[in-house]
């Protein structure tokens, strides 16, 4: 898969020996497949309303049956189908948000670490400002000002969570920058841009990949919290966060666990699996072992 005895070859071998990481990867893959093939897996449309037989009344809060594996919700929609489609929404939000935060964080970290001085000072104070606001506060402010939509959620999470990537990349650049081969490249008259892109970036890719994995897990949690609070993904689009909103009603919480426990459990499973992958990657890239 990788060039024999290269850095990534060793990392790959270490990763596949780590049982938890492999399990995590398999579970993540399972949810990715669920998201990709949602229309084939879900028995119903996620926003389809069901009626009580022979009557013009929504069949709401139906108990699990062969027709509705996890029952129906407060509006008579199939919970299982919403769960399957929810995987799509969750993955899309998390992956796009992490792409945004990784690009911003990497660029700022590279510039900050490589050029230092004033640039570093300005960017690091900017990081200090952003991290002073608890993430959820900033997200809530952004999503209340703009009309909530899935895109606002994606951009809000992306623009709020780049700070840890920026700090990590900066620290890595500071470490790599002093190495001899960079000095050699500079002595040859290589341009700054080429040094950054061709010599520094490939050498700090491993920690960035770990950060992307952890960041994806955190983005999933942020999206779920926002949607649970009603400022994230809006009805009728299903998300694992907004499917739990109903459980704030005592009746649902106490008597209808099939409505709120499954979306919570899949959310936990996916985040946990991604964290296992992240931990596995970190250990695999750590060549000191």
């Amino acid at each position: 898969m990788f060039k024999k005895n290269s850095f990534y070859d060793f990392a790959y071998r270490r990763f596949t020996r780590n049982r938890l990481a492999v399990i995590g990867f398999a579970v993540t893959l399972f949810f990715v497949i669920m998201a990709l093939f949602a229309p084939l897996i879900a028995p119903h449309e996620p926003s389809e309303f069901f009626f009580v037989e022979g009557q013009n009344v929504y069949d709401k809060y139906a108990a699990p049956s062969s027709e509705h594996l996890l029952g129906t919700d407060s509006l008579g929609r199939d919970v299982f189908s919403r769960l399957v489609y929810g995987a799509r929404v969750t993955m899309m939000v998390a992956l796009l948000a992490v792409s945004i935060s990784t690009v911003i964080g990497t660029v700022i970290g590279l510039l900050s670490g490589y050029f230092g001085k004033i640039i570093d000072n300005i960017f690091m104070r900017l990081v200090d400002i952003v991290i002073s606001f608890p993430v959820l506060f900033l997200l809530i402010s952004i999503s209340t000002i703009m009309d909530p939509s899935i895109w606002i959620v994606i951009f809000a999470i992306g623009f709020v969570s780049w700070t840890s990537t920026a700090r990590l990349v900066r620290a890595e650049v500071l470490r790599v920058k002093e190495l001899d081969y960079i000095a050699a490249a500079r002595a040859c008259g290589t341009s700054n841009l080429k040094i950054i892109v061709k010599h520094i970036l490939p050498n700090i890719l491993a920690p960035i990949m770990v950060q992307v994995t952890i960041g994806t897990a955190q983005a999933i949690l942020m999206e779920a919290s926002l949607s649970f609070l009603g400022v994230g993904v809006q009805q009728p689009t299903p998300s694992w966060g907004n499917m739990l909103m109903d459980a704030q009603k005592l009746l649902v919480l106490r008597d209808m666990p099939w409505i709120w426990i499954p979306p919570g459990v899949v959310n936990l499973l996916l985040v946990l699996a991604i964290y296992f992958v992240g931990d596995g990657l970190r250990d695999a890239f750590d060549s000191r072992q």
Partner: peptide, 22 residues
């Protein structure tokens, strides 16, 4: 401790209320 980091806090809160209060 990984489960503790990975569980959505609102879900954990609802579980705790369900179990210990209800």
């Amino acid at each position: 401790s990984l489960v503790g980091v990975a569980i959505p806090s609102f879900f954990f809160g609802l579980l705790v209320i369900y179990l210990f209060a209800l």
